[in-house]
């Protein structure tokens, strides 16, 4: 073989490579689906396929330069084919998924959940909100029985037998024990005495719970309703601490635009006693509850020395909080147990 023929051989080989590359790229472009790409890939990778065959022909070249030139040419041709194959595969895969996605469309509005979470009663919700605010103010939560003795409901609260204020409580008595001795608690205050008897001062406690009055139901009253009561007993507790706690609670529970005031009132179990009102941002005062410094006689009933400790107590209705919060017109509706009502909250 002459150099020339070899020269000619290289150029012929170059041409063959180029045409094989061109036809392979065209074939890749024309593949219709992933199966065709797969078949073509196998075809192009066969040992005796165009470019692979040329690769084995490299050995026939004698010149090192020619070998390098042809080698580089072949490598780049094969690289471009492989790249094209990968690109076409990715392209067809994406097409296949998008076709599937188009086919498997779902109308989500057809799906309606039949399993729904239930609803807590609005009185429970109000109680928990109140509890959380007081827990944040450093209070713990005390509980007591709903059926009480005369002692805890009245006597220990500075209302001895025949105390005139007792008549204001519309008490419901039970046919149990000594006549007139066992009753449904008319307020949460008996828990104060129970707490004083069992905890040690300092006491920072709230006492939410169900209470009973012999009141005919109407839009704002129920014979069975809920109260929350607070009790603080510590050394050095003054009236200013009572006012400060009411104010802190008012802002925490109702919002910082609210403010509070105390005005003198009367309860047998506190002295000085006060009603507390809150003022909305629009300036209107709303009566909320009663409070006062724990009466020394009540401290004594609870086994606490009034000369050493002082304290305050406050209380108000929970049902009304729920009623106001949800703009409920008639409090009786809260107790119909109608799911159409319960599911609103």
């Amino acid at each position: 073989m002459t150099d020339k023929s070899v020269q000619y051989g290289i150029s012929a080989m170059q041409k063959t490579v180029e045409s094989a590359q061109a036809s392979a790229l065209l074939a890749i472009k024309e593949t219709a689906d992933l199966t065709a790409v797969k078949l073509l890939t196998a075809e192009l990778n066969k040992k005796d396929s165009g470019l692979n065959a040329l690769k084995s022909d490299l050995g026939k070249l004698t010149s090192v330069d020619d070998k390098r030139t042809m080698g580089q040419l072949l490598n780049s041709a094969m690289l471009s084919i492989n790249t094209a194959l990968q690109a076409r595969t990715a392209e067809l895969e994406a097409l296949e998924i998008s076709t599937r996605v188009a086919k498997e469309a779902m109308d989500l509005s057809e799906f309606v959940t039949r399993r729904r979470r239930g609803h807590s009663h609005i009185v429970t919700q109000a109680t928990q909100r109140l509890e959380d605010v007081f827990v944040g103010l450093g209070f713990q939560i005390a509980e007591g029985p709903e059926v009480e003795t005369d002692f805890y409901n009245f006597e220990a609260l500075n209302m001895p037998k025949s105390h005139p204020a007792r008549s204001e409580f519309d008490t419901m008595f039970l046919e149990y024990g000594e006549p007139g001795s066992i009753l449904l608690r008319t307020h949460t205050s008996p828990v104060q005495i129970r707490v004083m008897q069992t905890w040690q001062p300092p006491i920072y406690a709230i006492m939410p719970g169900r209470v009973f009055r012999r009141d005919t139901p109407d839009a704002t009253h129920m014979p069975v309703f809920h109260q929350i009561e607070g009790l603080v007993i510590d050394r050095g507790i003054t009236f200013a601490h009572l006012a400060g706690t009411i104010e802190a609670f008012t802002k925490a529970f109702f919002g910082s635009e609210f403010t509070s005031r105390l005005r003198p009132s009367f309860f047998p179990f506190t002295e000085p006693s006060a009603e507390f009102d809150i003022r909305r941002a629009d300036g209107e005062w709303i009566e909320l509850g009663g409070c006062g410094m724990v009466h020394p006689n009540v401290l004594i009933s609870g086994g606490i020395n009034p000369e050493e400790f002082s304290g305050f107590a406050f209380g108000f209705g929970i049902d009304r909080m729920a009623k106001e919060r949800h703009n409920l017109e008639d409090i009786r509706e809260m107790y119909t147990n109608d799911l159409r009502f319960l599911r609103q909250f």
Binding site: E131, V135, L137, G138, Q140, A243, I246, P264, A274
Partner: peptide, 19 residues
């Protein structure tokens, strides 16, 4: 006058919590 007796938040020495 109750309004002149001041308002102080007591520093509870207890930590508030649910049992």
């Amino acid at each position: 006058g109750y309004e002149n007796l001041g308002k102080i938040v007591p520093q509870s020495t207890m930590h508030g919590r649910l049992s």
